[in-house]
Design a binder for these strands. Structure first.
Length: 391
DNA sequence: GATCCACGGGAATACACGGATG
DNA sequence: CATCCGTGTATTCCCGTGGATC
C-alpha cells in the first residue's frame, strides 16, 4: 500500500467510525447470550425441565418450529446457562472417577450438523459429560458406548441431551436418532429440536412433551434487528423504518432477516457510507434466496466442501454454465487441492442436500443430456465474509 | 497397531436427442 | 407413427485405500 493510500485511510477513519464495527453480531449464525425477545418460549422450556430442579430427569421432548424461529438461539442460550449452573453447584459428573455424587442431571447440547456418524454422536455426548477431550481416532465406537454406559450407570441422576437440527437433509433423521439413543442407558433424557411439525415427526411417539415455537412476530423481529444493529453497526447505522422493511420482507424468519441486514451493511460499508440506505436493503433482500438454506448448515460443512463453495461463489456466469465446467474451474484454483473427480462429487452431493441448486439449462445443443448450472441457495456475500473472517 | 473417515476413481445408471427401424 | 438404438453427456452409486491421530 502506498503512502497516499495510508493517509487517505487515516483521513477516512478520522471522519468518524466505520459503519460496521463488528460483523459477528450481524451474523445469522451467531446466537446471543440473552435472546430477550423469546421470554415465553424460555418459560415453556423451563416448565418442561422443571423436574431437574428436584434432581429428577425430565421426560423426552420434541421442540419444533419453522426455519428462523429461534429454536437454536433459545436452546443454546438456555443450555449454556444450565450447564454453568450445574457446574457451579458441582452436581454433575465431572471426572470419569465415581467420586462425584451428582444431585442434579447434567446438560449436554449437541448440534447434529457435523455429527453424522454413530462415532461422532457418542463422542459428542461423552465430550459433553467429561472434562477431558475424547480423541477422534484410535478408539472404537463400541469403546465409546462402553464408556458412556459405565459413566451413566454410575450417575444417579443422568443427563439431559439437547440434539439440535434433527431431520435435516443429509443429516441424522428422527428414526436414526432413536436408534442412537437406544444405545445409551435409560437415564438419558433427550430434547430433540427440528423443523418437522410434531404431527409428522416420529419422535413424538417417544416424547411426553412437544413444544411448538412460532415464527417471530413482526415487532419482535424488528427488535432483534435493532439490537443486533446496535451491537454491530455504528450508532444510527440502521433506521427503524428500514428494520421494519427487512422484518416485513422476512415474514418471521430471523435467519433471513439477519442475513439481509448483513448483506445490506456490507453493501453500505463498501460504498463507504455510514448508514444503510433504502437501496442497500432492497438489494440485500434480493440476494437472499427465496427458500434459503441455513448458513449454519453451510458453515458446518467439512473444510474442503467449504473451500469448493468459496470458489463457487466467485465464479462468473460462463464458468457456471455446466457442472463440468464449474468443476474444471474450481479444481484449477490454487486454493483447491482436490482432484476434479472429488470436486465434482462434492458439488453433486451438495446439490443433493440443497446447499446448492441444480438448474437445468433450457438450451439444448442437440448433443447429450442438457447441463445444469449450480446456484448457491444462500446469500453469497454473507458466506464470503464469514468464511474469510476466520481464515 | 487400532480406528475413523475423507478422497479418489471408476462403474453403473439416467437422460436427451437424432436417426433408424418396423 | 410408435418404438428402438446409439451416442454423448449428466448424475448417482459404491467401495477400497491411505492419511491422520491416538
Amino acid at each position: 500500500m502506498d503512502i497516499d493510500a495510508r493517509i487517505k485511510r487515516r483521513q477516512r477513519q478520522n471522519d468518524g467510525p466505520q459503519l460496521v464495527r463488528d460483523y459477528e453480531p450481524l451474523s445469522p449464525v451467531a446466537h446471543v447470550e440473552e435472546p430477550s425477545e423469546r421470554g415465553p418460549v424460555f418459560e415453556r422450556l423451563l416448565d418442561h425441565l422443571d423436574p431437574v430442579f428436584e434432581g429428577e430427569l425430565p421426560p423426552n421432548a420434541y421442540v419444533s418450529g419453522p426455519f428462523g424461529s429461534g429454536k437454536s438461539a433459545v436452546v443454546t442460550a438456555l443450555f449454556s446457562h444450565l450447564q454453568r449452573l450445574s457446574t457451579e453447584t458441582q452436581s454433575v459428573i465431572h471426572t470419569s472417577t465415581r467420586a462425584a455424587r451428582p444431585t442434579s442431571p447434567g446438560f449436554v447440547y449437541i448440534d447434529l450438523r457435523g455429527t453424522n456418524s454413530e462415532f461422532s454422536f457418542y463422542r459428542a455426548v461423552l465430550n459433553g459429560i467429561v472434562d477431558e477431550t475424547i480423541p477422534e481416532h484410535g478408539i472404537s465406537t463400541d469403546d465409546l458406548r462402553g464408556r458412556l454406559h459405565d459413566l451413566l450407570c454410575d450417575s444417579r441422576t443422568g443427563v439431559v441431551v439437547a440434539v439440535d437440527h434433527v431431520d435435516e437433509p443429509g443429516g441424522v433423521d428422527a428414526s436414526e436418532l432413536v436408534e442412537l439413543f437406544a444405545g445409551l442407558p435409560s437415564n438419558v433424557s433427550w430434547l430433540a429440536i427440528g423443523r418437522t411439525p410434531p404431527e409428522e415427526c416420529v419422535l413424538t411417539t417417544y416424547t411426553a412433551t412437544t413444544i411448538a415455537i412460532e415464527r417471530y412476530r413482526r415487532q419482535m423481529l424488528v427488535d432483534v434487528l435493532m439490537n443486533r444493529a446496535s451491537d454491530g453497526l455504528v450508532q444510527g447505522g440502521l433506521d427503524y423504518e428500514l428494520a421494519r422493511e427487512i422484518a416485513d420482507w422476512a415474514s418471521g424468519n430471523a435467519h433471513d432477516a439477519l442475513a439481509a441486514l448483513f448483506v445490506a451493511a456490507d453493501g453500505a460499508a463498501r460504498a463507504d457510507r455510514r448508514r444503510l440506505s433504502e437501496a442497500d436493503v432492497r438489494d440485500a433482500c434480493a440476494e437472499v434466496p427465496e427458500d434459503s438454506v441455513s448458513l449454519g448448515r453451510v458453515l458446518a460443512l467439512p473444510t474442503n466442501k467449504q473451500i469448493v463453495l468459496r470458489e463457487l461463489v466467485d465464479l462468473d456466469e460462463a464458468d457456471r454454465a455446466s457442472v463440468t465446467t464449474t468443476t474444471e474451474t474450481i479444481s484449477a484454483a490454487p486454493a483447491v487441492e482436490l482432484s476434479s473427480g472429488t470436486v465434482e462429487r462434492f458439488l453433486y452431493e451438495m446439490a443433493e442436500v440443497g446447499i446448492v441448486e441444480r438448474v437445468q439449462s433450457a438450451t439444448t445443443d442437440g448433443k447429450g443430456r442438457p447441463p445444469s448450472r449450480l446456484d448457491p441457495r444462500f446469500p453469497p456475500t454473507v458466506f464470503r465474509r464469514l468464511y474469510d473472517l476466520d481464515r
